[in-house]
Write a protein that binds this DNA or RNA. Structure first.
Lengths: 218, 218
DNA sequence: TTTTAAAATGAGTGAGTACTCACTTTTATT
DNA sequence: AATAAAAGTGAGTACTCACTCATTTTAAAA
């Protein structure tokens, strides 16, 4: 898992049987591209149909509304981005390191993992960031996953590392979460959204970011 | 300065004479509100006119296009946000602290200063964040100010503090800028855009953010 | 090969859209 | 009070929008 992009995954189910018709896949691909380029509201269904090489009516055969098309593209992104924080399959891979190992390795694993995920799904991240303010369904899904899944597990981890003395207990756990997340997400957004064309030494930046967080919370 | 909001400032010149007609001010206010609520592309000029209590034609008497109206609202925000980093008037206030004083005070002054600025201009920040991806004029203005004004001064400061030993010289100066800015801007965006309704202890969060940056870069 | 259902089509529809312009009202100047 | 300029108006214009639906094409089953 995690080696394919989200769009490809949307097209196949767990047994790799085809779920979508070829035209439907074309529609998703085209919509994703244009939404990322010019935003959901400025994108017309006729333009999507054109780029997908499909009649406009075909879009509405598969998606009742333009908004439903958007949600079918963006919704999975929210879950997938948060998955290492709650899906058991990933937890073993990401969280279950040798006992008492400093959290540096954990931090590194998470950052690299999410870095590569976003690298493969830059357009989707852009669309998500743009549209989450305007569509309540996305906000609800985000809150649901964050409050229900990510936050509790995160809190537990931080308390654990605070007890082990790796994180100073002067910091409120919520503040620790905020600082960690803005640093990591801030890096990823800077890297892929704000300055995607800058020449980055990714390995170096990741290592420095880890150092910054470790020092910062000590 | 800095005690009034940007919109009010747009309405008056330096001598506090009125530059805009009352209807024009109403248009700016209404446009700002609705752009922040539902985004530029989803906002119709008829709706702006309605909320402003004005005929639709009046908008186009003052602004040739809907886009010109957007730019007249958002453009000043870019300059104003960056002003403490280059306008001489502000530099004295923000940067010229006692010599050899640790940069903690500088950091605090900048954060509090920009925090309060955004507090008074939350809608404008939201619009700026939403629209900068789609309007080249805004990107150009941003780059111009950042590369020409903010970046050089920032680099100089960081080199200075690195020589003084307050910032570890293991960090590349550009990486330091990135880490500092994502932490500060990440805090402000979390505070006012992502979770504006959360109960924040602003003073506490600001102090912890300063600590995090200081520790992180040492 | 015939039947059946799903997929795809694209001209058509009514509700907007940004913007114009001939005209009226308000304000400033003499 | 007369004149000119600026501000404001709103019906009208050409066009685009998301979405519909009767019809045709494709693909799978019998």
């Amino acid at each position: 898992m995690d080696e394919k992009d989200l769009l490809h995954e949307l097209m196949t189910n767990t047994d790799d049987e085809i779920k979508l018709t070829p035209k439907q896949a074309k529609i998703l691909q085209a919509a994703m591209e244009i939404f990322a380029e010019k935003g959901y509201a400025s994108t017309s269904t006729s333009e999507i149909a054109k780029r997908a090489g499909v009649a406009e009516g075909t879009i509405f055969r598969h998606y009742k509304t333009k908004k439903e098309l958007l949600l079918s593209i963006v919704s999975p992104m929210i879950t997938k981005f948060a998955i290492p924080f709650f899906a058991d399959h990933f937890i073993k891979e990401v969280f279950e390191k040798k006992e008492n190992e400093s959290y540096e390795e954990l931090l590194r694993t998470i950052i690299i993992n999410r870095f590569n995920f976003v690298k493969r799904n830059q357009s989707l991240l852009k669309i998500l960031l743009q549209e989450i303010s305007f569509h309540e369904e996305l906000q609800i899904k985000f809150k649901e996953i964050f409050i229900g899944k990510v936050y509790p597990r995160f809190t537990k981890l931080i308390k654990q590392y605070t007890e082990q003395g790796e994180i100073s207990n002067d910091f409120n756990p919520n503040t620790v979460i905020r600082l960690m997340m803005t640093t990591v997400i801030g890096f990823i957004i800077t890297r892929f959204v704000v300055m995607p064309n800058h020449e980055w030494d990714d390995e170096y930046e990741i290592e420095q970011t880890i150092r910054f967080i470790r020092n910062g919370l000590q």
